[in-house]
Computed example of a mutant assay.
Amino acid sequence: MASGHTHQTDVVIVGAGPVGLFAVFECGMVRLRCHVIDVLDDAGGQCTALYPEKPIYDIPGFPRIEAAELVVRLKAQAAAFRPVYHLGEQVQGLEKLSGGFWKVTTSKGTVVQARAVIIAAGVGAFGPNRPPLPGIEAYEGKSVFYYVTQREAFRGKRVVIAGGGDTAVDWALSLAEIAGRVSVIHRRDKFRAAPESEAQLKALAKSGKLDLVVPYQLHGLEGAAGQLTAVTVATLDGDARRIEADALLPFFGLSMSLGPIADWQLELQHNQIAVDASTTATSKPGIFAIGDVVTYPGKLKLILTGFAEAAIAARSAYALIHPETPLHFEYSTTSGLPTA
């Protein structure tokens, strides 16, 4: 989609992650046209950027589905309603116009005017929390990786994983099947992962299929021209160890920010957008928000919950845009897909 143009539509969806993509479908079901804006170069949000090969187990109807496959299916489902995507563009400006329109401006000069805006920005702008190791920048993207996008890239390699949360433990379990050796570095013996996963990790360590290096923290890197040869670790008492390594995966969580959305004067609670759960309406009429970016009493941060919120937001947007034409609720099995 060419940037720098002016467009007019029914709804602007900010964020092309799974929840934003499903919002396209739900808007289409009530005959609302959508433009979708995302700062990433491809649709899918974290599912595409952070863990495309990671299985998801709580999508209804799919006992197991990889994140990338879920995105492919959601895009195909949304395609029936011909959404217009503006990818690789960050939403910046938001301005109220006459006639009930909102004007959304992107970092590339694209302007979209719409009667409603649905924010589906997930965790907002995100990036990794980098360990404070001298010279780590030289290895990033070559032998130090903050995300795993291709599991096979680590086949036969000596992999050091640092961290104690679900991401670290899940990838340790997965890569132990194909890597030459997996070493897990954590500052204490207790992990923050799901109890079942932690039990599997410790069972693999006990059987000698991976190494648990606790209680240690990352201390330094060895290598040349961006290729690691070893990682040094140390305890708080100064006891040091050297671990030969081809790759380091530091999993210390994400640094998250709402970015320019934080300046839109929406009511926020703990850096999340406060909404009315019954409508997904924010504190500004015509602006709705769904998915992990929102908070309300009882909110569950699940893709499943975001899908339900997308259905509510689409119908709330319809009521705003077509107040004179009440929406007659129908199940999709009865209505089928709307025709143009």
Rank of each mutant, 00 (worst) to 15 (best):
G17E: 08
K157H: 09
S207Y: 00
S207K: 09
R158L: 12
I59V: 14
S255N: 14
G208K: 07
S283C: 08
M1V: 06
P297Y: 11
L218R: 10
D237N: 15
T339C: 03
A289Q: 07
P132S: 09
Q227W: 15
G28D: 09
I13H: 07
Q77L: 01
G99W: 06
L70I: 08
R188A: 05
T325E: 09
E267Y: 09
G223L: 12
K209D: 02
L32Y: 04
L304I: 02
Q8W: 10
F329G: 07
E222C: 14
S257H: 13
R158N: 12
G208F: 04
F22M: 12
E140R: 15
A16W: 06
V24Y: 12
V294I: 08
I119K: 01
G164N: 12
A138P: 13
E95H: 03
L70H: 13
L228K: 15
Q46C: 03
I119G: 01
K142F: 09
G141H: 05
A205S: 08
T280L: 04
E95P: 01
A79D: 08
K206R: 11
I161W: 10
G124P: 03
T149L: 14
V123A: 06
V112S: 02
T235M: 12
G20V: 00
R315Y: 04
Q90K: 05
T232I: 07
A168R: 12
R187D: 00
H219N: 13
F126T: 11
T6N: 13
L212Y: 09
L40W: 03
H219E: 10
Q227P: 15
G165M: 06
T295H: 14
D10I: 01
F145P: 02
T229S: 15
S283Y: 08
A310S: 13
G223C: 12
L50Q: 04
G88M: 07
P63E: 09
L320Y: 09
N271M: 13
T305D: 05
G259T: 04
V36T: 05
R73G: 01
V294K: 06
A234S: 15
I303Y: 15
P83C: 03
H35G: 03
I303N: 11
R33L: 09
R192S: 07
F307G: 03
V104I: 12
Y57R: 02
Q200T: 00
R73K: 08
D58L: 06
A23N: 06
V214Y: 05
R82K: 11
D166W: 13
N129P: 01
T279A: 03
Q46D: 04
F62K: 14
S98N: 10
H35M: 01
G109W: 02
D58C: 10
P297T: 10
P297H: 13
E324F: 10
G226A: 11
F81Y: 11
G163F: 06
Q217W: 05
K190G: 00
A43N: 01
F307Q: 02
L266F: 06
V117E: 12
V293Q: 08
A230G: 11
L268Q: 11
G306N: 11
K157C: 01
L221E: 11
K202S: 00
Q272Y: 12
I118R: 06
I243G: 14
I290S: 02
P260F: 05
E140H: 02
L175V: 07
V159S: 15
K96Y: 00
M29R: 15
S143I: 07
